[in-house]
Design a protein around this nucleic acid. Structure first.
Length: 581
RNA sequence: GGUCCAGUAGUGUAGCGGUUAACAUGUCGGUCUGUCACACCGAAGAUCGCGGGUUCAAUUCCCGUCUGGACCGCCA
């Protein structure tokens, strides 16, 4: 009782073959006399037909959705063909039907167009994953992973593993902690990324490493963020930034080709961090549409309009985006909604003008004729354009206008959803300054090297110091990021010093690593690509849960297993852990 | 930590200060030999998330809470 074919295999040239199939009952259509059964497996659907004179007729009548069945029969050409499925020209005249297993009525419709909400789908994920769309997402994931391995293997990379139980570090995301039974009071941390280990592989002389690595970060979730996620983690010795970027491009070209048969063009455009932020208001710009940020600060230095003028004189910026040919599409009420949207990003307000023969809008009366002419000129305003201004501190201007730009592009359907726009964002600042804590943080991570000519800036002028760091961006998603690493022990120690570590702190947290740098460390660098986001792009979904087999909800729970869950007091006692209340 | 949206038969939605709580789909029964979202006829199926309050009366209004989702903060 084995199967001879899968349910997507049998075409017109199999007519008269005796075949045996297995699968799930996807749908039955009982016409009173004739019964049609759609038999589904992961490959596709085959139609079974049973007529009243067939000895299996009663059995066929009893079949319900999601029963697992075995069918033996002869392939025949259909009277009425269904050309929308690959097997639609044939059907199986059943000579034997065996119910392998029955099924309860499923809580969700097992078909591409399910009617269930995500809540229900996640609770019955094993049924949700029977749906062909979901199977395709995970199959694409499989192909992308194998394609990645093929590419990296053929470029002399070694797939090496690193520990899941490792050491907590204070920098970066919150750690998931695992109590140690053998060492009561001590904790392992799950890795946020294998960063230090992959650098140690370089020190060990492996030269080219990769790992499809699970990473864990105990931070709040988003549509594109899960607490455990997968990175394609790569590290190389002796390569330049340009070489690493070219290698990454080659990988992405192959993955896109193998997974969805799309040719993407390499090399990708390269933007500096400053260009990206200034033009797009984002360090991960979506370049599939225009509406770039325009700096109009100079126009308003001496303006009568005090809101703009004061912002400029207080080191803020006045920037704007122009929504082409859309003044008539946005009512005052609509613009108020846009303003509310901008306020989410801390903008104090959203000023606007419409150009309909002349500039109109609430702020028009505050602007001189010169200023109006300057605005029109500077951003090449045309009739029926809408211009939206944010005047604020630099990062607020960029954040709010950057988000608004994407928001409006979605509203007006300006984005070609079939397009893949890749670019690199390079020359990142080495540090970020935290106003509240009055200290510098590593913008990337504390092992990122400053550019060669920036070593002095590292401690003399940290705000301006540029790193050898690069992000690869696709359609507004940060697909991956990497850097050349510090391979000089003194420089690494200096880095910790600028970050506010005492020598003792540095020794406690990273002593083994600083020590390792002393034994002949090759220049090295790498990149990590977010596999889940990559699959989102490949499958054109906007929900990371769709491309992860068993994901968590936004409150970091699994509704199916109900993890996380309480544990027994015995278990806690064994670990030496006491609960607070 | 914060803001916003949602929670009503198995599933997805509608609805309303007083209802026999509606529709679709699924389920069950019936008719039907070429369907492929089969069609048609009929039936069953609801603690209106949970707790409290207002009211003569709450599924409906208010407060709290839980769950799901989107976003801000957070994510070296």
């Amino acid at each position: 009782m084995n199967r001879t074919h899968n349910n997507n295999e049998l075409k017109i040239d199999y007519v008269n073959a005796i075949v045996e199939l297995k699968g799930w009952v996807s749908k039955t259509r009982n016409l009173g006399g004739l019964i049609f059964i759609d038999l589904r497996d992961r490959y596709g659907i085959t139609q079974i037909v049973v007529s009243p004179e067939n000895p299996n007729y009663e059995k066929a009548k009893a079949l319900k959705n999601e029963f697992v069945v075995y069918v033996k029969g002869i392939v025949v050409e259909r009277e009425n063909k269904n050309l929308t499925i690959p097997t639609g020209e044939i059907e199986i005249l059943a000579s034997e039907i065996e119910i392998i297993n029955e099924a309860k009525q499923p809580p969700i419709i097992v078909a591409d167009e399910t009617d269930a909400l995500e809540d229900t789908r996640l609770k019955f994920r094993y049924l949700d994953l029977r749906r062909p769309v979901m199977q395709n997402f995970l199959m694409t994931r499989h192909v992308a992973m194998q394609s990645t391995r093929e590419y990296l293997n053929s470029h002399e990379f070694l797939e090496l593993e690193t520990p899941i139980l490792t050491k907590s570090t204070p920098e970066g995301a919150r750690d998931y902690l695992v109590p140690s039974r053998v060492n009561k009071g001590s904790f392992y941390a799950l890795p946020q990324s294998p960063q230090i280990f992959k650098q140690l592989f370089m020190i060990s002389g492996f030269e080219r490493y990769y790992q499809i690595a699970k990473c864990f970060r105990d931070e709040d979730l988003r549509a594109d963020r899960q607490p455990e996620f997968t990175q394609i983690d790569i590290e190389t010795s002796f390569l330049t930034q340009e070489e690493i970027m070219a290698m990454t491009e080659g990988l992405l070209v192959k993955v896109w080709k193998d997974s969805i048969n799309v040719e993407i063009n390499a090399p990708f455009d390269v933007l500096t961090y400053h260009e990206a932020v200034n033009k797009y208001g984002s360090d991960k710009p979506d370049r599939r549409f225009g509406m770039l940020l325009e700096d109009l600060s100079e126009v308003f230095v001496n303006s009568e309009f005090s809101v703009f003028k004061n912002t400029v004189t207080n080191n803020g910026l006045v920037k704007a985006i122009v929504v082409k040919d859309s003044a008539d599409k946005y009512s005052r009420k609509d613009i108020t909604k846009l303003e509310d949207f901008a306020k989410i990003y801390k903008a104090k307000g959203l000023a606007w003008l419409k150009y309909q023969d002349e500039l109109t809008g609430p702020i028009a009366k505050f602007l001189s004729d010169d200023e109006k002419a300057n605005v029109i000129n500077k951003v090449s305003l045309e009739n029926n354009d809408l211009i939206l201004f944010v005047a604020d501190k630099e990062n607020i201007v960029h954040n709010s206008l950057g988000a608004l730009r994407v928001h409006i592009a979605n509203q007006l359907d300006l984005i070609n959803k079939k397009q893949f726009d890749f670019c690199w964002v390079v020359d990142w600042p080495l540090y970020e300054y935290d106003e509240e804590e009055g200290r510098f943080y590593a913008a990337h991570h504390p092992f990122t090297a400053p550019k060669n000519d920036q070593v002095d800036n590292m401690y003399n002028n940290p705000r301006e110091c540029i790193a050898d760091a690069y992000d690869v961006v696709c359609n507004g998603y940060e697909l991956g990021g990497g850097s050349l690493r510090i391979y000089n022990q003194e420089l690494q120690a200096k880095m910790f010093e600028v970050l506010g570590f005492t020598p003792e702190d540095a020794e406690n947290q990273f002593g083994f690593f600083i020590e390792s740098l002393k034994y002949g460390t090759p220049p090295h660098g790498g990149i990590a690509l977010g596999l889940d986001r990559m699959i989102m792009l490949l499958t054109n979904t906007t929900n990371i849960r769709d491309v992860i087999a068993f994901p968590k909800t936004t409150s970091a729970q699994c509704t199916m297993t109900e993890a996380p869950s309480k544990v027994s007091t015995d278990q806690l006692k064994e670990l030496g852990v006491k609960l607070d209340g």
